[in-house]
Amino acid sequence: MNTSSHEISLTVNGRAVEATVESRLSLADFLRRELGLVGTHLGCEQGACGACTVLVDGRSVRSCIMLAVQADECELRTVESLAPGLAMHPLQDAFHKHQALQCGFCTPGMLLRCLELIEENPDITDEEAREGISSNSCRCTGYQYIVDAVVEAAEQMRQ
């Protein structure tokens, strides 16, 4: 295939990254294959399910339908940034407490989407959380415990 390469520089989880990438390389493949950040998962590879959600400049993005070159000069957050040390992030802790995950495959993308929701709306309600996570598919939980976790995490994070 006839592809061109580009040099990009970006920040991933607080660290500066410089790389040369093929123009057709998706951001998800860049994160998983080039940087080894395999917490970003691929469910449908067409932007429908949201499993590959990451934060680009603070906004949730489906990394399977964004190209790595488009992330040039951007600041990225993946699930690996949530709890770099032993203690989990309050949102992860709330997911754990409420059993807001079963197989865990949608969880990284769901966590980042929920983090965005809470940052936008620290007083998020059940209804707002339910509408907010309707962007991301979860095949296991039926969503209810995720809603519980988001509302409790928001409360924890307000304190």
Partner: peptide
């Protein structure tokens, strides 16, 4: 099983 999944 959850901590490993929560951490990606």
């Amino acid at each position: 099983e959850d901590p490993k999944f929560l951490r990606g």
